[in-house]
């Protein structure tokens, strides 16, 4: 998987909020959704502009690791590790955020327990259930593990 595709799959679940803030249009949101679902590589500049908040932190991580910010491993480590630590440590405005919000923002490893039309019901943190949209992951079945972010299954593990 290209780093642009990996980045977008993890970042896209937050795009509806960027749309609610009117920082992107419906049309731009559709471009992001189509690319996230169909594994299309979008321009790096376009992604960096829309998700500038994430890139500030990815650049910092890349410097620490002495790698490029678009290095696949940097993107992966950001979303599966650093991003959750930032939330847990209450950095930025997360200090004032309620638990339920922080829980949605975090990336979790989850097990698929049911498939219902276009959604999956997944179990994470041992006992919590959440419905997530299936469109970003292909060929999944009950018992598979995926990562989840907000209302989406992001990546099959």
């Amino acid at each position: 998987m290209e780093p642009e595709v990996l980045f977008l799959k993890y970042a896209f679940p937050c795009a509806f909020i960027i749309k609610q803030r009117a920082e992107i249009s419906d049309f731009e949101h559709q471009i992001l959704e189509d690319a996230a679902i169909n594994n299309k590589v979008l321009e790096r500049k376009f992604l960096e502009k829309i998700f500038f908040r994430a890139f500030e932190r990815i650049e910092k991580l890349a410097k620490e690791l002495n790698k490029d910010k678009w290095d696949y491993e940097v993107i992966k480590e950001y979303f599966t590790d650093r991003h959750n630590s930032i939330i847990d440590e209450g950095m930025y405005s997360y200090a004032k955020a309620p638990e339920s919000l922080k829980n949605l923002c975090k990336v979790h490893k989850a097990e698929i327990i049911q498939i219902k039309d276009d959604s999956l019901i997944v179990k994470y943190n041992k006992e919590k259930l959440r419905p997530v949209i299936k469109s970003l992951v292909k060929n999944v079945k009950i018992g598979d593990f995926v990562t989840i972010h907000y209302g989406y299954a992001v990546e099959k593990l």
């Binding site: 679940p13 509806f16 309620p98 638990e99 339920s100 919000l101 829980n103 949605l104 959604s119 959440r130 419905p131 997530v132 949209i133 469109s135 907000y150 209302g151 989406y152």
Partner: peptide, 13 residues
Amino acid sequence: QGKIIIEKVPEEQ
């Protein structure tokens, strides 16, 4: 999100 309810916000939050 995507026309499904993904989470309930607990009353106290």
